Every structure is written in C-alpha cells, then in structure tokens.
Amino acid sequence: MERQDIVVFLALAEELHFARTAERLLLTPASVSQSIKKVERRLGAPLFTRTTRRVELTPLGRQLLDDLAPAYAQVEAAIARAVATGHGLTGDLRLGYMSAAITRPLLALIDSFRAGTPDIKVSIQETTLADLYGPLRRGEVDLCVLPLPVAEPDLTVGATLLSETALLAVAADDPLARLTSITAADVADQTFLFAENLPGYWIDHHLPTNSATAKVTSLAGFQELLAYVVSGHGVAVVGAQTEQFYPRPNLTCVPLEGDPTFDYALVWRTDDEIPLVRAFLTHVMNQRTS
C-alpha cells in the first residue's frame, strides 16, 4: 500500500463518511473512493460496506485497521523524530508562565507541540510579578508568558496567548465594592498596590487614574498584595480570573470604566532564539491560524 492509500483508509475508518474524509484530507470524494477501491482490488475483498445511509468496516477492514493503525503510528513517529533531530529539535524546552489564568491555554499548546516533536521535553516553571524578567535574563527559562506591556531592549514579544478583562480588587466591605463600574474619579484617593520591582511604564499602563498623582505602594508579591487588599490597606488592578484562582474571604473584583485588559504574551531573549524556541513559536502561530 502506498502512503496516501494508508492515510485515506485510516481516515475513512475513523470518519465512516466519504465526504467528511475528503474534506479532512483536502481531497475530492471521488479520490477517496478510488483509493479505497484500489486497495480492495489488491486485497481481493471489500474493506467497507457502503449504503446510501452509512459506511461500515467489513471484518477484513477491521482486521486491517487493527494491524495497520499502530504500525503506521510508529512509522510516523520515527519520521517525526528523524526530522526533529535533523533540525536540531531535541532536548529540553523550559517555559515560564505567570498567573494560573494562563495555564490552560499554555498546556494545550504544549500538548499539541509534544505530539509533533516527541523527542523534545517541555517543562514549565511559575514566575512572579516581583521578578518579572529575571528568569528569562538569568537563563532559567527559554520562553516566558508575561503580562504586557514588555518594553525591554533585550527581550522580544511574540503572540498574545490570553487577554482577560482587568478588574479592581477591593475589600468586600469597601464602598467601591457596591459600584457596577469604577471610574478614575472613584479611586483618585486610593492607594494602589503593586508587586515590587515592576517597571514604571508597566505600573503606569495599568493604573486606572492619573499616574502623576496616584499613590502607589509596592509589596513583595501577588499573594501579599491580595492580603493587603482584603484587609482594606489599598486596591489592586488584577485579571478577571483572580477570584477563581486566588480566592480570599472579603475579596471582591469590580469592573473598571473602559474595560481595560490584562494581556499575556510569549517573550524570549532577543539574542538567544534557540531552535526549540523557534519551533514552539512556529507551532503557536500554526495553531492560531488553523
């Protein structure tokens, strides 16, 4: 059997529908039918029973599927490994991420990436707001999903993986918690809590009020920030999934006027784009356009 005939047979055995198989393989239904008939002539018996209403495997078709599918998967895996090795796509890819909100889309991308590059080991490491760019610059991770904006000359920003609504975290007994939308005037006298060591441009971007007059307090990290919020020591701009992933008694998140967002994008060292990084970035782009 030629490779194309194997691919058509396995797809039809899964779809049990000629038109859907043709659409999946970017072929015409006639091409699918011709391929199956060619194999059936070689084997001397039908692989499928066809009626106007359904397509089913014959006992011979079921036997061929059981024998052929695992063997073909092994061949495809061997070819994928050879291609990966030939292009330098082996080894460990270390991915950093910040915020539990990004884990689901990130892990979905990692799973599909691993399926096509079985010899690449992908590990993930959670990073922190207080050390936003440190893991990348110290070489602890090869790629990192970071909250925007990132305006650093030694770092390159790629595809945005998640965009979530930005909300204002306040204590549940704060008068602000009773508002349906918070304006700049509502928080003019508030103390805004941010993690320490964040760039000034990053803080200015996320402040919902005039940055020149805003009162800002820096804390050790995100967990400390939330502790201060629920105790009434200030407010903080957070992502919409904060209440789900970081629940706290007495914590409420209120919409901000203008519906600002928290955007998370892939970032890497500009002068150190290793083959594994390029491969993952290409995979992400292909997934977004498919």
Rank of each mutant, 00 (worst) to 15 (best):
A172I: 03
Y246P: 00
R54S: 15
A19F: 10
L109R: 12
F48Y: 09
A159C: 05
T49M: 03
R104Q: 15
L65Y: 14
G61F: 03
F262R: 14
V187Q: 02
S99Y: 08
E56W: 05
V32F: 01
V75M: 08
A188Q: 11
P275N: 06
H206K: 02
A73N: 04
D66W: 07
A236G: 00
V187A: 01
A265P: 14
R42W: 01
H283S: 06
N286K: 07
T252E: 07
R104F: 09
L136W: 04
G239S: 07
E140K: 13
D66Y: 07
Q244E: 13
M285S: 15
V7D: 08
N250Q: 15
S35V: 01
A45S: 12
L167E: 03
T117D: 03
G91D: 11
A77M: 14
A159M: 07
C253Q: 03
A101Y: 00
A195S: 15
D154I: 01
V83H: 11
E243Y: 02
Q125F: 10
F262P: 00
N286E: 10
G158S: 07
Y72F: 13
I274C: 05
E164K: 02
L225A: 10
G232W: 04
L26E: 11
I6S: 05
F280N: 09
A220E: 04
M285L: 13
L47D: 00
I102S: 08
R42I: 09
A236V: 01
D272N: 15
A212Q: 14
H205V: 01
S163D: 00
L93G: 12
E257F: 03
V32A: 01
A80K: 11
T21V: 03
A45T: 11
G96W: 03
V39H: 02
V187N: 03
C253V: 12
L132R: 13
D119S: 12
A13E: 02
Y201H: 11
A166H: 02
V150P: 06
I203S: 02
L68G: 09
H233F: 14
A171P: 04
Q4G: 03
E243D: 11
P175A: 02
L89W: 14
S31H: 11
Y264F: 15
V235E: 00
Q287E: 13
S31M: 10
T51Q: 11
V55K: 00
V235G: 02
V141Q: 12
R41M: 06
F48S: 07
A177I: 09
T21I: 06
P260M: 04
L167I: 01
S218M: 14
L155K: 04
G88L: 09
N210E: 14
T117W: 14
N286Y: 01
H206W: 04
F18Q: 08
N210I: 06
F48D: 09
G158N: 06
T217R: 15
V237K: 02
L225E: 10
A115G: 00
H17K: 05
T28L: 10
Q190Y: 01
L207C: 01
Q223G: 10
H205S: 09
N197E: 13
A108M: 08
D204T: 13
F192E: 01
E56A: 08
I110R: 04
Y97V: 04
D154Y: 04
P260E: 06
A30L: 15
A84W: 00
A69N: 05
T289R: 14
V267S: 07
L168D: 03
T165G: 09
